[in-house]
């Protein structure tokens, strides 16, 4: 698929993203759209389903190493995870875990383009996300679990916690990572607190550049297919990290206490709290 021409990664569909990251011809999709396992809940609520429920899961190789890969399609229902899509990812992680226990090293790559739980499937989606998180935590002790957030949807809600649990996290400048999405915060806290249409504020706080600068993401890549393939391969080659970011809870709690909630937080203040140094003028 790859050509010598520079080609964007963000514009690709979930299935194309998977195909392009895996070694050529190695992709074996599990529960493909032709199996037609759609959400049993959306139609009952008058919402048109999708044949793969917005999630592509596959086995294959990356750099000749056995890897499982899941990609959420951000264009379908905001990349929300319901019962079927969630179970597909959870089952895929379980499959990788079994392989590792049998002595076949199998890593995982998760393309997390998700608004979090699908509200129409509420508890079933939440349950699936909990299973995904448990799966990541167990699998990452055997082989790296690499999370990728590229945009345009970003990664929010329960899936942002899943992203935080990954061994390594790759982001693009367009990607965003946050527990609550901007519109949710605006709705709950008011537009004075957080204006979801203020792009500078939103990307300044939750965008890939800031997440990388403050150590919450490991790699910042351009929106380019070749750069993305290299970044994923690089993370997989690093193996299991000595420390996982999510183990450093005490440091994160300390940082939270430094936040002055009486003032509107800015990207610079967040940077200073998370890194301990004041931000210099932009290059």
């Amino acid at each position: 698929m790859s050509s010598s021409q520079s080609k964007g990664f963000v514009d690709l569909s979930a299935r194309k993203r998977v195909e392009i990251l895996l070694d050529r011809g190695s992709m074996h999709e599990l529960l493909s759209p032709f199996d037609k396992v759609t959400s049993p809940w959306l139609e009952k609520q008058g919402i048109v389903p999708q044949f793969d429920d917005g999630v592509v899961v596959a086995k294959g190789t990356i750099g000749a190493k056995s890897t499982v890969i899941a990609a959420i399609e951000g264009s379908f229902q905001g990349g929300s995870l319901g019962e079927v899509g969630g179970a597909k990812i959870a089952g895929l992680l379980e499959l990788a875990l079994e392989e590792n226990k049998k002595g076949n090293p199998t890593a995982a790559v998760l393309l997390l383009e998700s608004g979090g739980v699908r509200l129409q499937e509420a508890n079933l989606g939440l349950g699936a996300i909990a299973e995904i998180q448990a799966g990541i935590v167990e699998l990452r002790t055997y082989q790296p679990v690499v999370g990728v957030i590229t945009g345009p949807v970003g990664c929010f809600g329960g899936m942002s916690i899943a992203a935080g649990l990954c061994s390594y996290l790759i982001m693009t400048r367009e990607g965003r990572l946050g527990l609550n999405g901007p519109q949710v915060i605006e709705q709950e806290a008011g537009i004075d607190e957080y204006d979801s249409r203020n792009r500078d504020l939103i990307w300044g706080l939750t965008g890939g550049t800031q997440r990388f600068a403050t150590g919450l993401a490991d790699v910042l890549v351009d929106d380019d297919v070749d750069a993305m393939c290299k970044a994923v391969q690089g993370c997989l080659a690093k193996g299991v990290p000595a420390h996982h970011r999510s183990d450093e809870i005490l440091g994160s709690l300390e940082n939270l206490l430094k936040v002055d909630t009486s003032k509107q937080i800015t990207a610079d203040v967040a940077y200073q709290i998370l890194t301990g140094v004041a931000k210099n003028d932009d290059k």
């Binding site: 569909s13 032709f34 048109v48 389903p49 999708q50 044949f51 399609e73 264009s75 379908f76 229902q77």
Partner: peptide, 18 residues
């Protein structure tokens, strides 16, 4: 050949042929 094109995104559709 079995094929699938498109996506159930805003203003779009998916078409599956068998």
């Amino acid at each position: 050949s079995p094929v699938l094109v498109g996506c159930v995104g805003s203003g779009d559709l998916e078409v599956l042929i068998e």
